[in-house]
Design a protein around this nucleic acid. Sequence first.
DNA 1: CACGCACATCGACGTACGTCAATGATTGAT
DNA 2: ATCAATCATTGACGTACGTCGATGTGCGTG
Lengths: 118, 118
Amino acid sequence: MPKPLPVVDVDTSMCCQPLAEAPLTTTEATDLARRLKAIADPQRLRLLSLLMAAPDGEACTCDLTAPLDLSQPTVSHHLKKLHEVGLVTAERRGVWTYYRADPEALTAVTAPLLPKDS
Amino acid sequence: MPKPLPVVDVDTSMCCQPLAEAPLTTTEATDLARRLKAIADPQRLRLLSLLMAAPDGEACTCDLTAPLDLSQPTVSHHLKKLHEVGLVTAERRGVWTYYRADPEALTAVTAPLLPKDS
DNA sequence: CACGCACATCGACGTACGTCAATGATTGAT
DNA sequence: ATCAATCATTGACGTACGTCGATGTGCGTG
């Protein structure tokens, strides 16, 4: 049999005491989820790691299609997704567009998830 | 006109030098993306924050439907998603199921995204 | 045993996502 | 001006996601 639970006033409308104020508002959660969705993809994670491991920390689109084994439009699409949330920067140099991962934007995504910022 | 780019051997098949080895393998990226997808949702982020801010760090399903303004099946679905990747623990006590956020699992998700672990 | 409560599962719906082939846009070179 | 190369955009396809109502499951009470 299960352990006896600390009964308080179960037969009322409220089964437990109300929760404390949540530290994340609706808009905060929406914005954070938007950035998290951008990196919550295997190919985009590999994309970021490829950029960070690249010489001079940058790479053009044509460099990324082969190691990811994806078509050029797909890589362009992923880079756009990452760019929209500010996780990568884009710089056009001649025919090529060089992408670069933004470390500060990455830490800004992980910061709200850490236990406490005391 | 754009700046003159450092030409090396552009007219060959390879436009640039190949990238350095990526620190993320395909399986690593897939696994990390799976856990990131679990938290890349506004409601699940609010769910986690509600759990962490709750008294004793735990709450049952019935406590979470009202502050999230979601139906009970939807909350149950989100809790299952978080449970599948180990971000929350579930403990049945009587009629209620008490959920609790796992701080170590959260830091394990953010760890690979931080700049360097030197 | 029968009833009520909390929770999980199922089925369905609309929407968003990941991917590609085809096409358009822009740049540098001939 | 024409051409080739890189990249972005479009349209389409299958799949997965978020949400709900309805239903099933398990537990505690009378």
